[in-house]
């Protein structure tokens, strides 16, 4: 009995003592599910780490939550995609040194047969209006960058979608939202990266019904948490990351990232 007890204690201590890694310098980057889940960070971060020795720890949330993390001082840098919100947060003094990094675009996707006949419509706003009249719309409903873009379009269309029968807020990531739209034969707004990366894997019976309007432009930006608000922020390292992202080298790293099907998902456009 005593031996068994000892064995149990030893096992337990062994489990507890398994050591954790200690990297030299680490910064926390609050980012979004689209950048993390697409595999972009897995592609570019090792390059940055190799060059500078700085380890970037990514916490992936919706854009709204990621900005909030930075405001509270729980991250050193934010890499998100909702330019209006970002600029507001900079103006309020929570962030400094915001830069455009890259872009892709949003697409409206719907059932294969496009029964609401969205194809061929002239503007995003018109497309949204028609969906609201004839079909169902599945919304992220999670305060993400995509969600913010969608709400902006509804606002432009003069429609208040919340609480309407044809409007479903799922409160989930992009991929799950697509799956819900697929099951419900509904329309939704997706970012092209997620759409390309997942449409075959998830066996979506959907197609892109509308694309190419400047309204659907999806800009990603990076900004550093204001060190005057939060003293512990690793400003120097965070700036090194930002400067690398917008440098020729970082921009090339982003451009060279392809998904498993060979599609380029993000287009660098730092100035």
């Amino acid at each position: 009995m005593l031996r068994m007890k000892l064995l149990a204690i030893v096992l337990f201590t062994a489990i507890i003592c398994v050591t954790s890694v200690h990297a030299a310098t680490e910064i926390i980057c609050a980012s979004t599910t689209s950048t993390e889940n697409s595999g972009l960070f897995g592609h570019i971060l090792p390059l940055f780490e190799k060059k500078t020795g700085i380890k970037v720890k990514v916490v992936a949330r919706g854009t709204g939550a990621a900005i909030e993390m930075g405001k509270r001082g729980d991250a050193d840098v934010a890499f998100v995609h909702a330019k209006e919100q970002e600029l507001r947060a900079v103006q309020e003094g929570f962030f400094v040194d915001r830069h455009d990094v890259m872009y892709n675009d949003f697409v409206i996707i719907g059932p294969k047969d496009d029964f609401a006949k969205i194809k061929g419509i002239k503007s995003t706003v018109e497309a949204f209006r028609k969906i609201s009249r004839t079909s169902q719309f599945v919304s992220r409903g999670d305060n993400s960058g995509t969600n913010a873009k969608e709400l902006l379009i509804w606002e432009k269309a003069g429609i208040e979608p919340k609480g309407r029968k044809w409007y479903r807020e799922v409160g989930q990531g992009m991929e799950k939202t697509q799956r819900v739209a697929n099951e419900k034969r509904a329309y939704t707004l997706s970012d092209r990266g997620t759409w390309l990366a997942t449409k075959d894997k998830d066996k979506l019976e959907m197609i892109v019904v509308y694309e190419g309007d400047p309204t659907l432009f999806n800009q990603y930006g990076v900004m550093v948490v204001n060190p005057e608000k939060h003293k512990h922020i690793k400003y120097k390292e965070a700036m090194e990351f930002v400067n690398w992202l917008i440098s020729k080298e970082g921009q090339q790293a982003i451009a060279s990232f392809k998904d498993s099907l060979g599609n380029q998902l993000f287009y660098p456009n730092a100035k």
Partner: peptide
């Protein structure tokens, strides 16, 4: 924990992430 790769990623959060990714 933040589900940070190689640092705070555990079994259950990996499962949640892979489900998110559609794997």
């Amino acid at each position: 924990g933040g589900n940070i790769a190689g640092f705070t990623r555990v079994m259950t959060t990996t499962i949640a992430l892979e489900t998110d990714k559609g794997n």
